[in-house]
Design a binder for these strands. Structure first.
Lengths: 167, 167
DNA sequence: TTGAACTTTCAAAAATAAATGAAACTTATT
DNA sequence: AATAAGTTTCATTTATTTTTGAAAGTTCAA
């Protein structure tokens, strides 16, 4: 396969994977590009390579930095900013897990807790509701704890995680 | 909190959570509704409760059945079909993991493998590309294996999983 | 302090995804 | 075999998300 074909295929695939997992396509594509770039890239480079507008590039670079998975870099004697990606994949997983927990799961947990503890009454419907939402709360909490624990250890995190959960 | 308010809040929240994780809002809402319904619901019931069209209800019920997380049920003497959800949450997690692996991760892995093994040449760019995409392939494969292993054990899957991975 | 190089913002446009609803289809009943 | 009850399909509409691009904002160098 031609290098350029392989590169393009990779960027497209990473973009598609991202968009299925709640990260927008361009964001994932920029990340893909930075993952395989041997040198930091400028915003121009990225716009050029992905054929996207300046605004789009700017917004998604910002978002990636907010997630903590790419970094700004300054080159001596250069006015422009350059970007590199986090290349340690375990670190990447940790950061994504943290962000998603914070942004999505935590707020949902809050509501689940609220609704699972606030319905009184003795009707079968109400009882069943409380029972089910409580189970869901426990379940989501368990899942979230796992995500969080991942972030506490970088190496061999899985084994340690289990010790912690099972004890 | 009023029962109806709590119910509504729960359905909305589950819907939002779903849509952030790649499952469409209505699909997640229907699932939420079935999770808390003490009795199987008909399509009418669901349309009514969520204020959605017949077509929408039909398509999403179908999708949920394809995922294997809700079931059709027939009541004696009733022409209509009724639906219930999988209420075992571990089973739910297993099914979701299986589906997402099959639909999203497996195809991406195929491409990653392809691009990581097909670029020849000796340029720094090409070498770096091959190196990085190989790492990504291994990483995604590892993640996917974990998802898959989940499906092999229902009870205490985490502990067993670790034994298997660490051995 | 002016202006050139570069970045960010955000209202509007474009692209994408989801929902509607009426017609077609299926299945059971008389 | 005709009808009624119920379900699915899919072209069109609607809602949501993403992208654009031009104006506003920064920062640095002279």
């Amino acid at each position: 396969m031609e290098f350029s074909e392989a590169k393009n295929k990779f960027v497209q695939t990473w973009g598609a994977l991202g968009s299925q997992w709640g990260i927008n396509k361009t964001m994932a594509q920029i990340h893909a590009l930075l993952m395989i770039a041997p040198e930091p890239l400028s915003m121009e480079d990225i716009m050029e390579e992905l054929q996207i507008s300046r605004g789009n590039a700017s917004m998604n670079l910002r978002a990636l930095m907010d997630w903590g998975i790419i970094y700004k870099e300054y080159k001596p004697g250069e006015r422009r900013e350059f970007f590199t990606s986090e290349k340690d994949l375990d670190e990447l997983a940790v950061k994504i897990a943290q962000e998603r927990s914070k942004r999505e799961i935590k707020p949902a947990l809050k509501v689940l807790k609220e609704v699972s503890t606030s319905v009184g009454g003795t009707s079968a419907e109400a009882k069943h509701f409380t029972e089910q939402t409580t189970k869901l709360y426990d379940f989501v909490l368990k899942a979230d704890n796992m995500l969080e624990k991942v972030t506490e250890f970088k190496d061999n995190w899985l084994a340690r995680l289990v010790v912690k959960i099972m004890k």
